[in-house]
Design a binder for these strands. Structure first.
Length: 267
DNA sequence: AATGGGACCTGCGCGC
DNA sequence: TGCGCGCAGGTCCCAT
């Protein structure tokens, strides 16, 4: 679930609260989420190091450490970082910090990937990323769409096409741009492409402003909710009336993903 | 090139 | 009541 706005929110919270603190000890309650190196290497490499800086690339968090290594975190759908952590909960990994509090990593579905790397830039997934919406101009975006015969919605979610957008924001962006998710990218008019570019940029900016969307498991570092869910227009609103035209919001499966849209507003 | 499906996972809500 | 099933979705991987 965490997409660009949620991961950016966590990144900003971490910058305010975690940067500068030292990791005293790492407790791993479920080693499945540690993808590399070995469990012992992971624990050893993180003990006694300071967290110097937090970066984000698309949906990936990167914690740069005082020993030159980086902790790379992809939260996938159900990953959470919570500080201060609860004293007794089902955390998968707990980082005991110099403040005396714990930074908890939770993940119901064990999809999350934690990696301790010498150079995060060499990670295959990171290398495959392309610019995210804020790093593109309208003209660049229009060019990118012009030779793509694929449906616009799966294309927006393709991290190698444009990075940071997932299922929820793809739906909201297409609603604001009044574009049907089944349309082929190359068949959009210049005006539609421009509208899509603006919707993409604006929705992501607004969602970051509100601290992301708490649907399913996403919470902020404090454990509190992100408030953007209040402003959703189509996501998870099947059979509810469109806020603009009152037509019922439709749900279809597209690329195996639930896809919500207004059949009247989005042509 | 584009598309579809399965795999990875677990908890929840539904129908019978 | 209790069980089995579909669904939730980010990413990789394979087949067509």
């Amino acid at each position: 679930m965490p997409e660009l706005p949620e991961v950016e929110t966590i990144k900003r919270d971490l910058e305010k609260i975690i940067v500068g603190k030292k990791i005293i000890e790492v407790c791993v309650y479920n080693p499945k989420v540690i993808r590399e190196p070995s469990l012992s290497g992971f624990k050893r490499g993180l003990s006694g190091v300071r967290i110097n800086r937090v970066l984000r690339r698309a949906k990936v968090l990167i914690l740069e450490l005082s020993n030159g290594k980086s902790l790379v975190i992809h939260l996938k759908m159900t990953g959470q970082l919570v500080y201060p952590g609860l004293k007794s909960n089902g955390a998968r990994v707990t980082f005991r910090l110099s403040s005396g509090e714990n930074l908890d990593f939770n993940d119901q579905r064990l999809f999350t990937e934690l990696r301790l790397l010498d150079d995060w830039r060499k990670l295959k997934f990171i290398r495959g990323l392309v610019p995210e919406p804020k790093d593109l101009t309208s003209d660049e975006f229009k060019d990118m769409l012009s030779n793509k015969k694929t449906k616009i919605k799966p294309l927006l979610m393709d991290q190698k096409f444009i990075s940071g957008i997932g299922n929820l924001y793809a739906a909201e962006i297409l609603f604001r741009a009044k574009i049907n998710p089944l349309r082929k990218a190359c068949e959009l008019s210049i005006k539609e492409k421009e509208g899509l570019f603006c919707s993409m940029r604006d929705i992501l900016t607004e969602a970051i402003y509100y601290g992301g969307s708490s649907v399913d498991d996403y919470v902020r570092l404090s454990g509190g909710k992100g408030e953007y869910k209040k402003y959703h227009k189509v996501y998870a609103r099947e059979n509810k009336p469109c806020f603009i035209c009152k037509a019922l919001i439709k749900r279809i499966a597209l690329g195996g993903r639930g896809t919500y849209f207004c059949p009247k507003c989005q042509r």
